[in-house]
Design a protein around this nucleic acid. Structure first.
Lengths: 173, 173
DNA sequence: CGATATTTGGTATGGTCCATAACAATTATC
DNA sequence: GATAATTGTTATGGACCATACCAAATATCG
């Protein structure tokens, strides 16, 4: 379904509307017809997902947390004492790709790898104090600036219904 | 929110269930708690989107069409006589990235670039006969094998409500 | 016990998608 | 007619995803 994060630089300069040239012949380049595309589940899903991620990044700009990083911090906080493989796999991240991600979080002192005493192969993941503090602030930002927007847009009931349907798709489709 | 297309190779071998070792001590490694993650809009949106795309690709395996390619064919069919820039931008594709995509579709004889006589810079996009035929078959596959699954899962009314809400997010978020 | 298989974290690597800069040809602007 | 803007294109780099492979540690089982 395509749909990239194009910066939406439309309407930069008054190309036609302001300059009354060729008045009636070419109004404003006639927008294309989306047609059946606007009914395609995948298309609208992807577009919505991009917008949501975009907004998420803006809300978290002060904390410099991506959606993926936020989800890792959330999961580590909720499941202390787990190792990299467990955290990564439940998030759908492949272990090799999880390494650089953790390197990043660890270098920023948000979480730490601790060699397990039971199984000296595995690294137990823990949030640092700074990590906990940052996550707490992140949660507030997400709740007030991000998720709150859904309520404004859809209303509480619809918001919950939407999340529920998406979860159902994610699990049973 | 992470969430990749991991091949879900779970339950490959009967690691624990079959071999009755350490019976009650370690049941089955206790699944992690998702916690607030399952309420995060971005997380559930991304997971759903991946599942939908995955299913889309399976349904279209016989035609070898990706979601992006399908959307291009749909849009070209609905808007004949448009050039690359117009088609690409309405789909959120940057012009440079659209070139290789069109090269692919054109090499498969699904669509064609035609030099415009009005503006000899631009390429008018058209579906070939084969392209029209493939698109027609693609539409049927999507309708019967892909979109129909949503009705089975959510019901007609919920399906429409979902699409509507996603469209609203895509446009107004 | 000891040989073999499995698991864990990690590296290397390639693919795909997305984004920016730059360019030639053509057209628009003034 | 000189300058600016547009179109398709190439080149290129980044982010993300996926696979193969490796060493260390552990599990398995003869």
């Amino acid at each position: 379904m395509t749909v990239s994060k194009t910066s939406e630089k439309s309407s930069e300069k008054p190309t036609d509307a302001a300059k009354g040239r060729k008045d009636a012949s070419e109004p404003q380049a006639e927008a294309l017809q989306l047609g059946e595309l606007s009914e395609q589940l995948g298309y609208v899903l992807k577009r919505a997902q991009l917008k949501v991620f975009e907004n998420f990044l803006r809300c978290m700009a002060s904390l410099q947390l991506t959606p993926a990083q936020f989800s890792v911090l959330l999961l580590v906080e909720k499941n202390p004492g787990r190792n990299q493989t467990e955290i990564a796999s439940t998030l759908g991240i492949l272990r090799p790709n999880f390494v650089a991600m953790l390197d990043n979080l660890e270098s920023r002192d948000l979480c730490a790898r601790i060699r397990s005493t039971n199984d000296r192969r595995s690294h137990i993941l823990v949030l640092t104090d700074k990590g906990k503090a940052v996550l707490a602030r992140a949660k507030k930002l997400v709740a007030t600036k991000h998720e709150a927007r859904l309520n404004d847009l859809l209303g509480q009931a619809n918001r919950e219904a939407l999340i529920g349907m998406l979860a159902k798709i994610a699990n049973e489709f």
